[in-house]
Structure formats: C-alpha cells, structure tokens
C-alpha cells in the first residue's frame, strides 16, 4: 500500500532522528566541564583553598574545583606551564616569571594574603645580619619570590644579589643543605622555616615584615580561560572567603589545615596571626582598583626582577590583573 510505505519511510526517518537526538542529548548530559584545577604549595595562606575543598565550599558556590597539591612554588609554576593546572596559587613573582618566560599570560584575579613576616632569610649561626652575607652561599629557589625577598633585604643593607653566591635549590633540598651546613643562608617560609627555627640552628636575618604589602599571594589563570571560566573564578573567590569565615568559627578548620602542613594547629594559627595577613572579602575590591595596591606591587616587583635579571623586561601592570568584575559572570 502506497500510503503505508510512505508512512513507514517517514516513521523510520523520524525514529532515526529521534534516536540520534536522544543519543546526542545523552552524550551532552554525560559531558561536564572539566574541573578547574588549582595548584597549591605548602603555605598557610593557601590552606584555606584546601579547607574550601574539604568542606565542599567550591561545590556550594557552584564551581567544580580540584586542588592539586604540590610542594614548592617552582613545582606549581611548572605544572601551570605544562597545563596540568588551570590556576596557580603563588606570589606575584611567579606570575611575572611565567609571563616573561613562556607564551602563557597568567592574569591575577584575586588576592589571598600578604606575607608580613612569614617569608624569611635564615642564616647559620653565628651570622647575625644580612650585611654579613657578602661572599657567602645563599640558597634560593630560582624563579620564585626567594630572589625578590633576598634582593630587597640586601638592598636595605647596602648589598646586591651579586655580592652573594646564589645556590639554586628547592625548598625541600635547601633545608637539607642548611642542616648539612652546605649553605650559609636560605630564603624560605613556613613550615620549612618553622622547622629550621625550632632546631635552634637558624636565625632570622630578614623577613617580609620589613617590606610590608610587597609579597602578595594571589590566584592567577591564563588569559585565554577567563572568558569561559569567569563564573568559576568568582565562585573560587567566594569559596576562599567562606573558608576563612568557617575557620574563624570552627576550630576543626585550623586542625585540618595544620594537618596538611604537618604542624600543630596552635603553631599554624600562630603563624597566620603573626606573619601572614589574610585578605578579607571586603578588601579585595580595593586592591584591584586601577593604581591600587596590586598594580603597585606588580610594577615594583617587576622592576626588581628585571634588575636581578630574573625576568627580561617589565610589562604593563594593568595587563597582569583582572580589571573585570566577575561577580555577575554566568556559569
């Protein structure tokens, strides 16, 4: 029957289309945006990101985030450069190094904390001050904030980086070198610094307390991903603030963070209170205004890094931090 045949063909075609549509929708449903991977090292300020993950604050804020635990700023930088992580939790120094040495263009989208004494230059006994480091071996992690801190310290004591012998080691290795007295000084931070200080063999020669608001820990993401992950970035910022609020009211929060650092909760809180200034939600906006704190830090740190030849040239600070308000960004 002609009509039957025509109907059958039409029916089959409709069925095939419907099946393919269902299959397509099924696959679309199966697909999710890849999680946003944040590389963090061992630093008290970053632990709030770990706490946000453990307490599901990222999920609550609508972001699929995965924390990748790495050990040193250099490891974070390398993971970022190799594409293993989307966001790096570092200081401004690492951001500028990546921009200078690779094709990637990390952009700072939030501020986590300021180092107000946690980053230190530790010297072997009997060295008492930076001025005594002339001609001595100093271990730094090249390409990290270490060089910047040491340079600023030396500058305040009338010396230059060239006046000391730099030994490039990561944080784990330099602690061992210091213990074995292979180096005269190290540039480090908690918990590595805390362990050395506890041993009584180390003395603080210089700390970030002397250069307030200069060593700033930030989160940065490559420029190419800002548009597609805008809403996630806003959620990360919110979750970070939420973790800070949680820790203030729940002691288990500090315990969780201290456990990951491998230190006692009391020690962890002590470091946070005395040597690190966490940036509250209300202060982030002020830091990002044109000509504000972030822009100033970027310009100043960039200038120093060029002087110390860690980067080849300075860049426009306005291109390094996000000037766009992401709070209304849609997922």
């Amino acid at each position: 029957m002609p009509s039957f045949c025509r109907k059958s063909v039409l029916g089959l075609a409709t069925l095939a289309t419907a099946t393919m549509t269902c299959f397509f929708l099924f696959l679309t449903g199966c697909t999710r945006k890849p999680p946003l991977r944040i590389g963090i090292g061992i630093w008290p300020g970053y632990e709030f990101l770990y706490l946000a993950q453990e307490k599901d604050f990222f999920k609550e804020e609508g972001a699929d985030v995965e924390i990748v635990e790495l050990q040193s700023p250099t490891d974070i930088r390398h993971a970022f450069e190799e594409g293993h992580i989307d966001i790096m939790a570092t200081t401004v120094v690492e951001v500028l190094v990546v921009r200078d040495q690779t094709k990637l263009k990390p952009v700072i989208f939030t501020v986590l904390d300021y180092s107000s004494g946690a980053d230190v230059v530790l010297g072997q006994s009997p060295i008492r001050g930076l001025a005594q480091l002339k001609g001595k071996k100093v271990a730094i992690e090249a390409g990290s904030l270490n060089g910047y801190l040491l340079s600023e310290g030396l500058k305040q004591n009338g010396l230059k980086l060239t006046d000391v012998t730099l030994v490039n080691e990561n944080q784990v290795a330099m602690v061992k070198s210091f213990e074995d007295r292979k180096v005269d000084a190290v540039v480090t931070f908690p918990p590595f610094s805390s362990n050395l200080l506890k041993s009584g063999k180390a003395k603080i020669l210089f700390s970030s307390k002397a250069i307030p608001m200069k060593i700033v820990d930030v989160l940065s993401i490559d420029q190419s991903k800002i548009q597609s992950r805008g809403a996630d970035l806003a959620a990360v910022s919110r979750a970070f603030s939420k973790a800070q609020d949680y820790a203030k009211n729940h002691p288990d929060g500090y315990a969780l963070m201290a456990a990951r650092e491998g230190v006692a909760a009391r020690e962890f809180i002590e470091t946070l209170k005395s040597d690190i200034t966490m940036v509250g939600r209300q202060n982030i906006g002020n830091a990002f205004v044109p000509g504000g704190l972030i822009e100033g830090v970027i310009a100043e740190v960039g200038k120093t890094l060029v002087e110390t030849k860690e980067i080849t040239k300075t860049c426009d600070p306005k291109q390094v931090y996000l000037q766009q308000d992401l709070s209304d960004a849609k997922p």
Partner: peptide, 17 residues
C-alpha cells in the same frame, strides 16, 4: 634517595589531569 625529594618528584609527575 631522599624521601622528601622523591615526594616532590612524585607529586610533580602525577600533577597531570
């Protein structure tokens, strides 16, 4: 040979997605 360095090595090489 150093456990800490090996730890850093492992966390670095396993950082991939």
């Amino acid at each position: 040979s150093n456990t800490e360095s090996l730890g850093r090595f492992v966390s670095h090489v396993t950082a991939e997605r």
